[in-house]
Structures are given as C-alpha cells and as structure tokens.
Design a protein around this nucleic acid. Structure first.
Lengths: 258, 258
DNA sequence: CGTTACCTTGATATCGTTCAAGTACCGTGG
DNA sequence: CCACGGTACTTGAACGATATCAAGGTAACG
C-alpha cells in the first residue's frame, strides 16, 4: 500500500491506450484513478491463483509478470508475459473463479482496484471501453500466434519467433533493444512458454548462437545479432501485432472526448 | 442474400448471451437486427482470409466454421471451432487486416452486418457490450486451455481433452450427446487443432478405442463410451468453460433493461 | 461404377525428452 | 575478502514420442 512511484507521472495505462485512441482529459483522469493505489511486490510471488476466487483487479505499472496454468502433476504452461500498462485480472468482472495464475517475475509495482470500477467505466466512458476491447483483441492475436507456434513450429522456429516478438514489443515500449538486451526470462520460463524442455531450449539457444543469429548469453542476456535472419527462419509476420491506430471509421464514431 | 431460415425464431445470439445476463426487449431487438441478413454458404469456403482487409462482420447462425492460421509452407494451425451464436470478425472494428482465416466446415447460415453497428451498440446499450466482453473472455479461456494442451499435454491427453471439451460445449447448446455423436471434424482437422500429424491422430484414436474410452469410428463418428475415464486421463477441469451467469455484483451494476 | 475424400496400417527417421552430472554465477554471512 | 549455498546454465548419453514416407482400404457421391 505504499505509493513508491512518483505520483504525477503520465499514467502507464494512458500511455498505452493512447496508441489506439486520442484520450480526453476526463478519460485520462479515470485511467489515473486506476493507478492511484500502487503497491510494491517482490519477485516470485503469485498475485492471482488458479481456482481461487477473484478479489481485486489491477494494473501493472512496473516489472514483468507471468500468466500461467499448472497441470496437476506440476507441468506448467506460460500463457503470456504481462508488461507494464496491462490490466490484471480484469475478468473478475465476468468470472468468479480464476482459471489461471499470475506471478511476478521481477519486483513489480501494481495498483489494485475494485474490478467493478471498470464495469462502470463501460457505461460512463464508452470510448475507454472501446480502447480496452482493442487491447484485448491485440492480446488475443498474440495468443493465437503463440498457439500456432506450439502447434506447428519446430523448437528452433519457436525460439526465433519469440525472440523477435519480444524485441518488437520492447521496441514499442520505447526501450532500446539493439544494444545489450537482458530479459528477465530464465531458460526455464522460456521452456514453459514454448512447450519445450529446459534442456532442449538450452541446446536450441546454442544452435541459434552457432548459426550467428544471436549473440552470447551469460545469465539471461540475449542479443539479436541478425534480426532479419531470425525473422526469415521462423517466417515471422508482424501483422498479428496490430501496431496501428484503430481504423479511422471506428474512431469517427466517437468524435472528440467523452 | 436469401433468408433461408425462419425469420421469427429467437435469435441465436440472444439465446447465447442470455446465458450471462437477462436481456431487455430493446437489447433482444438489437441482437435480432444483427441476424436479419442471413445468407447460405457452402461447405469448405473461406469467409475471411489472413492478410486481407476486413469487410463485414457476421453472426454464425447455423453450421460449423474453423478459425485457423497458415504458415508459408502450408502448415495449418486451427485456432478454434466457431459454433452457432458466435460473432465472426468482430475485430474488424479495431483492426484493418485479418491475422487469421475463417472457413466453413459444413454448409452454414451467416448473417452479415457493418461491424460499426457493434461500435454504436457499445455506446447505446452498454449491457450488451458487457455481454460481448463476457463472451470474449470465455473464448480466451478456451484458447488458454488449448495452449496448455499443445504445450504440455501428450497426444493421448490432448485428444481426450478435446473430446470432452466438445462434448461439454455441445451439451451446453442443448444437443444430445450420449447417443451417436457425429462431429463434422475429420481427423485432418483434429490433427491441425492439436498440433499433431494426421497419422498420429489416427493411431491415438485407435488407442483410446482399445482402452475402452471411446467407441467405434466410422466416418467422423466418435461416441464417448467412458466420459469419466476420459476426464481422468487428461486431468480435465471444466472451470475454464465458465458456464455460469456473470457474478451477481456485475449484474447489479446494470439493473434492469437499457 | 468410377472418383474422391477420408481413414488405416507398417516401417523408418527425427526431434525432443529424460536422466545424470557438472559448471558458472551471484548473494549472503562470517 | 572468502566460504558457502542456491539458482541458473551446460553438456552427454539413451530413450521415447511423434513425424514422415509409402501403400492400401473404405465409404460416400454423382
């Protein structure tokens, strides 16, 4: 409950959603409210657990989280990486019980709120509703692409694909990437993301290195040495990232501000 | 453009969405409008294509469709099965270019409309917006479960899992299932859904049969002989289907009818 | 009654897993 | 500053699950 981050910075949510829609002042304010109760959480903590009832919803302000599911025997599948500016557990509005878990991968700053504030926002500020729907749709697109990787791409292709994907997502958030990239992803996490064994991920990384596509890798450090080559290897097509404004026609329907 | 189905039947959409929310008359009417331009489409036709711009959105009224992605070399990954009462290409509101294809698996009845009618509905009838969000969230849950199957379950488990899933979805739509179930799914489609080769799907089906879990299988006919056994085999947990009304609290926020 | 799509089966190859061991790095307490 | 313990990474060897290749069989459809 300690507000650790500077209070008046532009909200993470607003930064992200304004990629899709220019926001009115009233809308920015509402988004800022969602981020007003920031809390600091240690690394390696579950902030949502499968089969438990939902309580709060949240916004990730800083850090990385992991959305994952567990099978009874301990096998784990990572669904996606949750980056700053993402809502957490928004489904609390529509479901009672969580069907997945979310854990912190680094120390995180998260702001919690009653999920029903979002329901109200749907009635109040439909433009924000539209932006949230947009965001969901983009997440879905990522998920479908991941499904395609797991179902139809080889280990080598999967790894190349996710490296390029992460690099694109980072770039979108304005982070430099060409230089020395250190991801908070252990090889174990990558394995559980790609549906591979840890050992095989390790060997596949080595292979990419031997092929000159990526560089070194001390602890968690991977640099894309030949991004273009990686893209070619896995048939990467960034369409699914949908990094554009909403179609003009949709924006017209909501002329100015609330 | 020929309206082939009886015009005054309860709309497919209303039937589905009222699982989540009691609908007001005004809302039912709006939903009925979405279904007013029904068209008959043959089996095996693509009604949406990857990398093409979106045009119309639609509602599937009758039949089964396949949502899938293709890799350049022809590998195919099926994302999900589209059943009656589902919207199609609703993302047309937020994206310009499709990142997946949708094809008919059986002859279908589909009603088309301008996707922006849905955008307007978001401003007009926020309760419907909420119901649509609910529905999306459920689709996501299916997708996450599928991802988990592809990443972490064996072929045998995957097949058991999807058979139980389909049987549950059918049951929800009021279809008898215990009797002779004929799915419109060829083994090739199942293979592309589960990320397996056709040949291996065939062998795995045989294995399930030999283990007494399913029965016979002439063309596309599979009967669950021991549903409970199948559930045990794959650790099936139906939480992810979220077959309940919205949480009471969410429903309260929208008291009666628009 | 031939054509086509779908299903079935065998033999062989491959990719990825598992088991087992060992190494490098990093933070902590002495 | 060093010893210690943990976590993550690395590598080898053997195994197993699934893919691929190739050939037939069967049922539906015009």
């Amino acid at each position: 409950m300690t507000p650790d981050s500077p209070p008046l910075k532009a909200s993470t949510l607003a930064t992200k959603l304004s990629h899709y829609l220019e926001l009115a002042e009233k809308e920015r304010q509402r988004l800022a409210e969602f981020e007003s109760r920031a809390e600091r959480i240690a690394s390696g903590v579950d902030i949502l657990q499968e089969n438990q009832p939902y309580r709060y919803a949240g916004v990730l302000i800083e850090g990385w989280c992991l959305k994952y599911k567990l099978l009874v025997d301990g096998r784990r599948q990572v669904i996606n990486y949750v980056l700053p500016g993402s809502f957490i557990a928004l489904e609390a509005n529509v479901f009672d019980t969580a069907d997945h878990s979310i854990g912190t991968l680094t120390p995180c700053t998260i702001s919690w709120f009653d999920p029903h504030e979002v329901t109200k926002t749907f009635a109040d500020l439909p433009r924000l509703a539209a932006a949230i729907v947009w965001d969901n749709a983009r997440e879905d697109a990522l998920l479908m692409e991941r499904l395609t990787s797991l179902g139809r791409r080889s280990a080598y292709e999967r790894l190349a694909h996710i490296l390029v994907e992460i690099s694109h997502l980072q770039a979108r958030r304005g982070l430099p990437l060409e230089k020395n990239t250190v991801l908070p992803l252990s090889q174990a996490v990558i394995a559980d993301t790609l549906g591979l064994s840890l050992v095989h991920v390790n060997r596949t990384i080595r292979q990419l290195r031997e092929d000159g596509l990526i560089e070194a890798t001390t602890q968690r450090g991977i640099v894309l040495r030949d991004p273009h080559g990686l893209i070619k290897v896995c048939g990467y097509d960034e369409t699914y990232l949908h990094q554009h404004l909403m179609p003009a026609k949709t924006r017209e329907i909501f002329p100015g501000g609330g």
